[in-house]
């Protein structure tokens, strides 16, 4: 298992520098004037960044207010009998609700779970699996659709949330099977 960890560390350290050297080398071998073409491509970066601003402001303000109000704690309390009946660990509900809304917020809840229950506990592992198998859906929607000025997102959000819910359920189920039974 130690070997796996080393491979992961090596990969995360080397992935970006490898791409940054391989792509220009390849292009140069294909006789592309690399500096000129790089600058040409990079030009678009500024406009896109500015275009996203109103979309991200709208999304992050609503999410920020929602988080600050403590509504997530109330929802957790209100739902805990139902969750117990379903066999869903109620400690993981705040994380599950926060995950599609905020990357930083869910990371804070995850760190807190790890600290309170121990890094090798079922809850910490299930939470880590949830973090690794879901995304901040609302942020992705705001940024990606914002970049092209799409305001009517149709079924993108329901599909994204269903995927998150499936990821969370699968994470809890597989972690219970892997880490609890033995």
């Amino acid at each position: 298992m130690n070997g796996a960890r080393e491979v992961i560390e090596l990969l995360s350290v080397w992935a970006i520098p490898a791409l940054l050297v391989m792509i220009p080398l390849w292009a140069s071998w294909k006789r592309i004037p690399v500096y000129e073409e790089f600058v040409e491509g990079a030009k678009e970066g500024f406009q896109t960044g500015v275009r996203i601003i109103p979309f991200l402001v709208a999304m992050l303000v609503a999410i920020g207010m929602f988080r600050a109000s403590g509504a997530i704690d109330w929802i957790t309390q209100a739902c805990s009998p139902l969750l117990a009946w379903l066999g869903f660990p109620h400690e993981l509900l705040p994380l599950s609700l926060m995950r599609p809304l905020s990357g930083g917020g869910s990371m804070a809840i995850f760190s807190d779970l790890v600290k309170t229950h121990g890094a090798d506990s079922f809850l910490a592992r299930a939470a880590g699996t949830i973090m690794g198998s879901t995304e901040t859906t609302f942020y992705v929607v705001a940024v990606y659709f914002g970049a092209v000025g799409v305001k009517r997102t149709r079924h993108a959000i329901p599909a994204g949330l269903l995927a998150d819910a499936a990821g969370i359920m699968a994470a809890i189920w597989i972690c219970r099977w892997l880490f609890v039974s033995c």
Binding site: I8, M107, G128, M131, S133, A159
Partner: peptide
């Protein structure tokens, strides 16, 4: 666009590096 978003929001990363780092 919606299919592309769904693939993106469902997270397809091979290794949950941040979660592993925190643990």
């Amino acid at each position: 666009m919606c299919v592309f978003l769904a693939v993106n929001t469902s997270s397809i990363q091979l290794i949950p590096a941040t979660a592993v780092a925190i643990l």
